[in-house]
C-alpha cells in the first residue's frame, strides 16, 4: 500500500497532460509508505546528443535512434541530473526520504516497460551505497486523456509488482 494525497495525484496527472505527447517525469518524497511531496523534473531527452542516447539499452536505443529528437521524448524520458540532485537535497533538508519516481506513458498503459525495468535495476545496483530506501515506481498513463490512470510498482529482480494506491484526502 502506498498513500498519496489527492493533490499530488492531481499534480502528476496535470503534469502528464501538460507535456503530452512527451513523457513527463518527477520524483516523490515522503516517509515509509506515505508520499509527502512531488518534484517535477525536466525530461531532457530531446536535448540529448546521439552519444548520450547510449545510456539506453538495445531495443530502446534502436527505436530512439530512428526518431527525431523531439519525437524521442514521446517514448522515453531522461531526468535532468542537476534538478534531481537539487530535489534530493531539498528532500534531505526536510528530513524526508526519496520515496519514488514517476513518469508518464502517453501512448500505452500504466505498466513498466522493459526500459523502465532495466533502469530500475541499474538504480538498484547503487541505491544501497547511497543509503536510499527502496523506491516506488509510479506510472501515469494518459493514453486515454479523459481517463488517466496511475499505478505504483516495486521492481525487484526485474519483476514489477503492483502496489495498491490509497488516496488521502
Amino acid at each position: 500500500m502506498l498513500a498519496i494525497p489527492s493533490s499530488i495525484i492531481k499534480n502528476m496527472i496535470a503534469h502528464a497532460r501538460e507535456l503530452a505527447p512527451h513523457e513527463c517525469c518527477g520524483i516523490l518524497s515522503g516517509t515509509e509508505h506515505t508520499i509527502a511531496e512531488a518534484y517535477r523534473i525536466t525530461n531532457i531527452l530531446a536535448a540529448l546528443s546521439e552519444q548520450d542516447l547510449t545510456r539506453f539499452d538495445g531495443a530502446k536505443l534502436t527505436d530512439l535512434q530512428r526518431l527525431s529528437p523531439e519525437e524521442r521524448a514521446d517514448i522515453a524520458f531522461q531526468m535532468d541530473a542537476r534538478e534531481m540532485a537539487m530535489a534530493q537535497r531539498d528532500i534531505r533538508s526536510k528530513s524526508l526520504d526519496l520515496l519514488g519516481f514517476y513518469h508518464s506513458h502517453t501512448f500505452s498503459p500504466a505498466r513498466p516497460s522493459q526500459t523502465d525495468i532495466t533502469i530500475a535495476m541499474e538504480f538498484e545496483s547503487y541505491r544501497a551505497k547511497l543509503h536510499l530506501p527502496e523506491p516506488f515506481h509510479l506510472i501515469v498513463s494518459v493514453e486515454h486523456s479523459d481517463q488517466p490512470s496511475i499505478r505504483a510498482y516495486r521492481i525487484r529482480e526485474s519483476k514489477p509488482t503492483e502496489v495498491p494506491i490509497h488516496t488521502l484526502p
Partner: peptide, 13 residues
C-alpha cells in the same frame, strides 16, 4: 573516499 558516477533516472514506454 569513494566517487560514484551515476546517470539520473530514465525510462520509457
Amino acid at each position: 573516499d569513494e566517487v560514484s558516477i551515476i546517470p539520473a533516472i530514465a525510462g520509457g514506454s
